[in-house]
Computed example of a mutant assay.
Amino acid sequence: MKNTEDSVGAALLGVACGEASLAPEAEGWAQRLQLPYLGPQAPREMAPGGLLVWLDHQGLALRVTGRGAPGPVIVDFSGGKAAFRRLHGGGRGQLVAKAVGLSRARRIPSVLDATAGLGQDAFVLATLGCSMLLLERSPVVHALLEDGLARASQDPELAPIIARMKLQAADAAGYLEAAEEVADVVYLDPMFPHRGQQSALVKKEMRVFRDLVGDDLDADRLLPAALQAARCRVVVKRPRKAPPLAGPAPSHALEGKSSRYDLYTLRALD
């Protein structure tokens, strides 16, 4: 995920918490993230439009200040969309599972998720048995994901899944360019630039996310680096009508209702 001073500095106010008992932990996050510590706050009563790294008893989140702001963005693997996909998502029949080769492979591939974000697709693949290495370059997004993984690891039902997910702070392009055959599959899901009025249709959570990380303006650098680092294939998730990333044409594509998976096959998984 993109993280630059221009895209973050104007909106990100600092780290705050919901009550005084959480102050030591919140202050620790502020020091780690090199952000101002704002103490206990009432985000709804603050000037609208700012972004907080917010800590309450639910966990670490990204929150917009002001009345009527969208709800917090938090990594939660135990409930919501993640739980639904784990229990009712369709297993190896899901498009992302087919894209990485799970539907036909005789062995379960290792996957490097080079643009981890909130870890949703990585969690699905880990649920299906894949060993996952997650890269995230935004310090704040990395912190949200680290906190979500830590909370989920305390759930006996989720702990074996989380054990297959290793998180690393790294810039994806630089990491891949310096690596050779880091995993069977390299998975890319770069933030797609919004197009005029279409941005109004983006979900509230993703609008908040964009306020923090911006667009992945260097996304076209990722594909050649991924092709160098993958043993068997590269998978790129795109909006269904978006053009492929710059570079060689995909070997194949899988289309869903809103997303498309471009597959670049190097060799058979088996």
Rank of each mutant, 00 (worst) to 15 (best):
F192G: 02
I108H: 07
Q58K: 15
Y37L: 06
A42R: 15
Q197M: 14
S258R: 15
L35W: 08
R210G: 00
A30W: 07
L35I: 09
L125D: 09
G117E: 04
Q197D: 13
K241T: 12
A23W: 03
Y187M: 08
A20G: 00
R92W: 08
D262H: 03
A229L: 10
R221S: 13
D155I: 00
D262M: 06
S258M: 14
K241V: 10
L38W: 00
A105C: 11
L33H: 00
H57E: 13
T4Q: 12
P40L: 10
V53M: 06
S131R: 15
P36L: 11
M206F: 12
M206D: 06
S153G: 04
G101L: 09
A23P: 00
L145S: 03
S78C: 12
L112S: 08
P239Y: 09
G90S: 03
A116T: 02
P139N: 04
R151E: 10
P193D: 08
A152G: 06
V15P: 00
S103W: 13
A173G: 11
L35A: 10
A242L: 12
P193V: 03
T65C: 09
A268L: 14
L125F: 06
D189G: 08
Q228D: 04
T4C: 13
G117W: 04
A126R: 05
R107I: 06
A23V: 11
V202D: 05
R240V: 15
L145A: 04
Q94G: 05
K237D: 07
Y175E: 02
T115E: 02
V111M: 07
G18N: 03
M191V: 11
H142S: 12
A178S: 15
L167T: 09
F123R: 01
L269H: 02
Y264A: 05
I162G: 00
S138D: 14
K257F: 10
D121R: 03
D216H: 05
R195M: 06
L201C: 10
A172L: 06
A246V: 09
Q31M: 14
R107T: 14
G71C: 07
T65S: 14
D215Q: 09
A122D: 01
N3V: 01
V235H: 05
G90C: 09
L62R: 00
P239W: 12
L128K: 11
S153Q: 13
P139K: 06
S7G: 02
R151P: 07
G214R: 09
D6K: 15
R63T: 01
P156N: 10
A170S: 12
E255W: 08
F192N: 02
P160M: 09
